[in-house]
Design a protein around this nucleic acid. Sequence first.
DNA 1: TCTTGACCTTCCAGTAGGTGGAAGCCCTAT
DNA 2: ATAGGGCTTCCACCTACTGGAAGGTCAAGA
Lengths: 145, 145
Amino acid sequence: MNIGNVSEQSGLPAKTIRYYEDIGLVQPSRRENGYRDFAVQDLHKLAFLGRARSLGFSIDECRTLLSLYEDRERSSADVKAIAQSHLARVDQKIEELQALSATLRDLVVRCHGDDRPDCPIMDDLTRSDVRRRENIPLEQPSEHW
Amino acid sequence: MNIGNVSEQSGLPAKTIRYYEDIGLVQPSRRENGYRDFAVQDLHKLAFLGRARSLGFSIDECRTLLSLYEDRERSSADVKAIAQSHLARVDQKIEELQALSATLRDLVVRCHGDDRPDCPIMDDLTRSDVRRRENIPLEQPSEHW
DNA sequence: TCTTGACCTTCCAGTAGGTGGAAGCCCTAT
DNA sequence: ATAGGGCTTCCACCTACTGGAAGGTCAAGA
């Protein structure tokens, strides 16, 4: 099966599939002309990956899930542990964003938003005390959401 | 003022401050020995940036906010518009994560998590229909949370 | 005066998870 | 024979930094 075909059936862009090969998630064979030749199992794996990614699992988690996926003897406890820790992170992120949302909403509501320059949002950003930030965790850009 | 001093007072790592200079957010002068020499205004700008970033504004939004910060004639409407669109994105993200959380929680609850291999989580990831994904937006990795 | 250590500099690479584009084969249909 | 679409590799770019190496600078203490 050519990459275009697999792309269409799995819903993943061809670029992404090549990238997944690069990082070792799939190992399609090659034809004589150099074209990748995907087996049906590869298609299943890619579709599995697409679903796991759409649930927000990281590539590393996907790697583990994939090995569990291919292990017929794996225990459901192993899978559950991964899903649980992912769920905990999602819920944590939700809480952080909700605190952020509340702060922003408060600022937006208090800003009259007209032609005059005075603005509570700017005042807040300019303020050098720390009252506002007491309950707001820092963004962790390294999390790459 | 040396970078270490500014770092301590603004709460931003020195590396980050150098990076902010690289991308043109601050322009400290230089001493004869090559050391950066920050003015008090630079410190204010960096503290402002730190607060805006902690509220989740992107670097590009910070750039705009900074120009508004330095414009005493700016209208509060301009600031409000940026904050509002940011708030909308935050709320959108919260909704997505909540849908995700609900799905994951359901899967986790249904998985008995013992030594046996059968696992609803795996079943869901393996399933090739689209029922589950109907209400779940795709992760947008380009958003870089 | 010498040395130690803290502080500063630049530059390069890496992070996660891809995406965009260029240059160039390959294959099929007309 | 040629046009097109599909396939290949490779390199660069995105966000917002962070880590580390190699080396210059400065102030304090022996």
